[in-house]
């Protein structure tokens, strides 16, 4: 065994961005829950809910799934899925 090669660069820390994304996800979940508890309804509330879900999804895909560093094609596939689903749900709501 080659000792120097067995010493990886000491980088055990989770990227700071992941912690920020986690805080954002919790805050956005709190907002969603709050809107539900207040009984808020209507197109504007729907837009906020789907917008929050879209942003949460993009944050999870980009930072947690590490698609931020992935080939563009894979970024487009997952982001496209999020835009497609939230867009269809918004359209169905408004129909």
């Amino acid at each position: 065994m080659n000792a120097p090669a067995l010493s990886p660069a000491p980088s055990p820390a989770t990227p700071r961005a992941a912690h920020l994304v986690y805080a954002f996800l919790l805050a956005a979940t709190g907002l969603t829950w709050f809107l539900g508890e207040t009984g808020a309804a209507g197109p504007a509330v729907m837009a906020v809910l789907m917008g929050a879900a879209l942003l949460k999804g993009l944050a999870v895909a980009g930072e947690f799934m590490e698609l931020r560093h992935a080939p563009r094609l894979w970024q487009a596939v997952v982001a496209g899925w999020l835009f497609f689903v939230t867009g269809c749900l918004a359209a169905a709501y408004l129909a």
């Binding site: 990886p8 055990p12 820390a13 990227p15 919790l26 969603t32 829950w33 999870v60 947690f64």
Partner: peptide, 29 residues
């Protein structure tokens, strides 16, 4: 809705721990 929100927090937190697990293994831990 409280159960739904709690489950959202649990899944998000689980994902956060998984991100940390990957980072720790990459760091040799």
């Amino acid at each position: 809705r409280n159960a739904g929100a709690l489950n959202t927090v649990l899944l998000i937190t689980g994902s956060w721990f998984v991100v940390q697990a990957v980072a720790r293994l990459r760091g040799g831990d």
